[in-house]
């Protein structure tokens, strides 16, 4: 299986043993610590990254199974207007879930630039926020092009 990863258009070699998750490899070996791990069992969405554009849970993805697919982490979305929109809307309190929220939100608006309220709620259902910033997260996604 592959021991290279294409992350944010940069090719990395990695040496983690088989069974290591993508989240562990990103954080511990590639030092891309923007991706957060909260539940570590695929429930909460904090670890969301894009794999070939699809929101994916890095905490339950095996690093060696990613192969040639393109991984995009929050570090690769630095310049995306969604980041500024989250700041403008004050769409966070503690901020721990925010990288995953932004990654899911970017995938949504890349598929549909102006999603409806229902589409936002459907697409963001896998990103939990224990601070309860949901109304502001929804606002950030509604107004990201402002």
């Amino acid at each position: 299986m592959s021991n290279t990863l294409n992350v944010n258009d940069h090719l990395y070699e990695f040496h983690s043993p088989a069974g290591t998750t993508l989240a562990e490899t990103l954080r511990d070996e590639l030092a891309l610590t923007g991706t957060k791990v909260a539940c570590a069992e695929g429930h909460c969405g904090a670890c969301t990254v894009l794999v070939d554009g699809s929101p994916t849970l890095a905490c339950i993805t095996l690093a060696h199974s990613v192969g040639d697919a393109k991984v995009t982490t929050i570090e690769g979305l630095r310049e995306h207007p969604m980041v500024e929109s989250f700041v403008r809307s004050d769409a966070l309190q503690c901020g721990f879930c925010t990288p995953g929220q932004i990654v899911s939100a970017v995938a949504l608006v890349e598929a549909k630039a102006v999603p409806t309220r229902d589409e936002i709620r459907h697409a963001m259902a896998g990103n939990l926020c224990r601070c309860g910033a949901y109304p502001k997260i929804e606002e950030a996604i509604r107004t990201w092009q402002d």
């Binding site: 043993p17 088989a18 069974g19 998750t21 695929g42 339950i60 993805t61 095996l62 060696h64 199974s65």
Partner: peptide, 27 residues
């Protein structure tokens, strides 16, 4: 642990199949 790619359905003996991994990895 070893992880390899399948090339035919006859080589699964003794191995644990994984597809999306959403169940196998947490278990």
């Amino acid at each position: 642990m070893e992880l390899r790619q399948a090339s035919s359905a006859t080589e699964l003996d003794g191995a644990t199949p994984v597809h999306g991994g959403t169940e196998v990895v947490p278990l």
